[in-house]
């Protein structure tokens, strides 16, 4: 069992209350413009304690922009973002790459984030299955290893909300399944809300409570099985995506052989 010190301010909501309580974070009629283009228009969304919300949508659909707006990194041109007061957010950014010129181990990288002691750092690394990486150079880690270290770093602050921007990038299909298992485990152990961006709805499907399909605006949202039947979703991803889902939902054991080749893999 995990024996973490009690966090300084309100403890993470216990799993019993999930998925309930007032939203951790919510956007209201959110508009973002960049370079004269409207990237997001009228986006309404929220994440509640203990729920996993997955955001899908085409490239350029504004998923990362929305995350950055929620984090306060992106100026809004309209609408607002409300956060629960004192909300602790852990963030895993997209396209994380460390310059090989910077010699820094995974352990040291974690120590930069907080004053947590070495034992706590090791413990959290173990929680995400990355304890063996503590002395490795950050720049030499594989995609999956790096994502786990980043996940550990995000967890160091005992977050009530985790925002993960494509945590599965650069990870092969088997690795993805492991990673999403780890993420689901974090939710059930810690009861934190999780906002996840993924290209692969099929793989995150089983552990997702709610899906938001974003293409400049919220096309549809709801339980994953209803979203994939939604006309707007089928418009965006085609009927193959919707029917392909059946394979994944019913034959979890066979995902390795039936999985499509990862898109854009090097």
């Amino acid at each position: 069992m995990r024996l973490a010190k009690p966090p300084p301010s309100p403890p993470p909501s216990s799993p019993q209350t999930l998925p309930g309580g007032p939203p951790l974070i919510a956007s209201h009629g959110l508009f973002v413009e960049a370079g004269g283009n409207t990237v997001l228009s009228g986006v309404e969304m929220e994440v509640r304690p203990g729920e996993i919300v997955t955001m899908v949508g085409p490239n350029g659909g504004g998923k990362t922009t929305l995350v950055r707006a929620l984090l306060g990194l992106q100026p809004l041109s309209g609408g607002s973002v409300t956060r629960r007061p004192g909300l602790r957010v852990g963030y895993l950014p997209q396209r994380f790459q460390v310059d090989i010129a910077l010699p820094i181990t995974a352990g040291r990288f974690l120590s930069l984030a907080s004053r947590a002691d070495a034992a706590q750092r090791e413990e959290i690394l173990r929680e995400v299955g990355a304890a063996h990486l503590i002395g490795r150079m950050l720049a030499n880690l594989s995609g999956g290893e790096l994502q786990r270290v980043l996940l550990a770093r995000a967890l160091l602050k005992q977050p009530e909300l985790l925002i993960l921007d494509e945590p599965d990038q650069g990870v092969d299909v088997t690795g993805r399944l492991d990673l999403f298992d780890t993420i689901a485990g974090i939710r059930s152990r810690r009861g934190c809300g999780i906002l996840l961006i993924s290209h692969d709805l099929h793989l995150v499907m089983s552990s997702t409570d709610r899906v938001i399909c974003l293409n400049g605006h919220v096309c549809c949202s709801g339980h994953p099985s209803s979203v994939v039947r939604h006309p707007a979703y089928i418009d965006l991803f085609g009927t193959r995506a919707a029917s392909g889902l059946a394979v994944y939902t019913h034959e979890h054991d066979h995902t390795h052989s039936e999985a499509p080749p990862p898109e854009g893999a090097p």
Binding site: L71, V89, Y91
Partner: peptide, 8 residues
């Protein structure tokens, strides 16, 4: 290490 992470 990472500017965006630092900002966040």
């Amino acid at each position: 290490v990472h500017e965006e992470l630092a900002r966040a």
